[in-house]
Structures are given as C-alpha cells and as structure tokens.
Design a protein around this nucleic acid. Structure first.
Lengths: 150, 150
DNA sequence: ATCATTACCTATTAATTTGGTAGGTTGAAT
DNA sequence: ATTCAACCTACCAAATTAATAGGTAATGAT
C-alpha cells in the first residue's frame, strides 16, 4: 500500500472544506463528525496541511480551517505528498535516499523510475476540483499529458 | 512506499536466477552472496516464490533453485504481487478489504481505482525478460496497452 | 473581564509491519 | 555416512501507523 490513512484523510478533509467552506472557516469538529474521523487524529494532519499552507487555520470562536487557494489549484499529488512525505513506489527513489551502490548497474531501477513518473503524472494531473465535482473522466479526455518516455 | 524490500529482493533473485541458472539449479547461498542480501532473509522470500511455483527448489547436494518458466513468461506484477500480497495503492482496494460504508458515495474511490489499474497495467506489461535484457524501452514502443478508461 | 470556542502544541501508546536472526529437520547426491 | 541445500518453526528489534490524552494560546461574544 502506497497511501496510508493520513493521506486519504487529508484528501477527504480538503474535499470537505472545498464543499462546505465556500468563503467561511469551518471548525475541525464539524469535519471530524461529517467524515467520521477522530478529531484528535485529524489535528495532527491539519498541522501539516497548515504548515505547508494548503489550508489556513483561524483561532477562536468562529474560527476553523479554510482553503488558501481555489480547489482547481490543488493537485492531488501535492496534497498526498505533503502528508505522506513521498509517493515513490520504492525506497530507492525517495528523495534523500542514499544512492545504492548498485544503482548504476541496477536492472530494476529504470522500471521503478518510470513507475514513479507514471504515478506522479497521474496524481498531479488530477485537481481537487475534479474530485469535488466528480468529473474525473473529463480530466482524462485526452491523454497527451501522459508521456512515458522520461 | 508501495513495494518493500521483500518485493524488490524477490525481483532481484528472479533476475539472478534467470541470468545464472540457464538449465541448472543455483543454490541460494550463491544468490545471497552475489546480491549481497542475507541468506536467511532470502529463505523466507523463496518459500513464498516456491509455494506459488514461480521457482522450483531442489534439495540436497547439487540442488538449489531454478525458474519454472521462461523469463518472458513472468510479469513483474505477478512476481511483486506474490511477495507483497497486494500492489493496491490504498487499503480500500486490497482484495479482501471489507467494503467501506462510504464506498458508494466516495469521491476519491474512482481515482484510486484508476491508479490501481494504471499501476497493474504497467507492471503486468513488463516481463522478467525485459529487465534481464535491459530492454525496457522496447516494451513501451507503442502504448496501446495503456487504456485508462476502465 | 470572562467565557466559550477553536486552533495548536507536546507527550504517550497500542498495534502492525518490516526486516531480519537462530536453530533445527528433511531430502538428495557423492 | 557425509555433505550440501531446501525447508520449517520460532523469535526479535526497529520503525511506522494510527491513534489518545491533556494541555496552551488566540479570538469573538457577552
């Protein structure tokens, strides 16, 4: 499994805010109830999203979280990467990974590289907006974006 | 990370056998030395590969492991799935996963489904032979196999 | 000023997965 | 009989995951 609950929850929160917080902050409590996720656990996820400025948190009464951009300006890849750390399919490709001695002659590395590229292209191509509007199919109307060459 | 050392090691072992065991069994000890992987750890991986009949183990002196098919008849997906259990990007899609209450209305599930399909198509399209011969690029000459529709 | 509300911060923890080790048993060739 | 090598069982340490618990700080309403 590549994406844990952290990433999946983060996505659901972002969708929830996009749907319910048009131009208002919505308290985490509401999101936790609607999504049926522990509020305490969500807090730790929101800390990350907030630090990376994907959402803005406002203290006190009437406060809560709101998006910092339009839903069409978030890619799913960005959201997942921010909470998961990396979307690389193997440790070898994780940024910061000490390059393996065998890397040069490795028969599998190119395959992992291409897979990583494929996954990234896919997830970066989809925008938060596409999920909110259930318009995933349209995002793939023409597949010009997918070039396996690199 | 989607593929752990188990899967990566399994792949390297399969490539090693394909390269060195044309029509002879090769002892795990040799593979462990060549690949610089703990023999004991490899044993637990070989057990799985052997049970699923991806390799054949021969006891006693002169014994060792050999492939049960031609390298062109193994897909990378099959090898990885056999040791990793599942290549699904999220738990929701793992076979045997209790279907989530929200599945019907879930805004993210279709996206995960397509990603799963994309990864599977990619890894099932590549054959062990392609890695042995470093001929990955040729495998993608024409991308007819990649249809994101489903 | 006080209170309710809400984000934010710091620990702690239980369960699971990962990546091994250790030692013994069985089967086969010489 | 000996040696080699697969196979089997059990255990273990570290890391990761998925939380929980209990507080502090900021903000708006009264």
């Amino acid at each position: 499994m590549m994406v844990s609950t952290r990433g999946r929850y983060a996505l659901r929160v972002m969708i929830d805010i996009a749907e319910h917080g048009e131009n208002s902050s919505i308290p985490l409590k509401d999101i936790a109830i609607r999504q049926d996720i522990s509020q305490k656990y969500l807090e730790s996820i929101m800390t990350v999203l907030s630090k990376k400025e994907l959402v803005q948190g406002i203290h006190g009464k009437g406060g809560g979280y709101s998006l910092t951009r339009k839903p069409s300006e978030y890619s799913i890849g960005e959201i997942l990467r921010s909470t998961e750390g990396s979307l690389a399919p193997v440790a070898c490709l994780e940024c910061g990974a000490s390059t393996c001695d065998r890397a040069v002659e490795c028969k599998t590395l190119p395959m992992w590289g291409k897979l990583d590229y494929l996954i990234s292209q896919y997830l970066d191509h989809i925008k938060l907006d596409d999920l909110v509007k259930n318009s995933l199919d349209e995002a793939f109307k023409n597949l010009d974006w997918l070039k396996l060459k690199s």
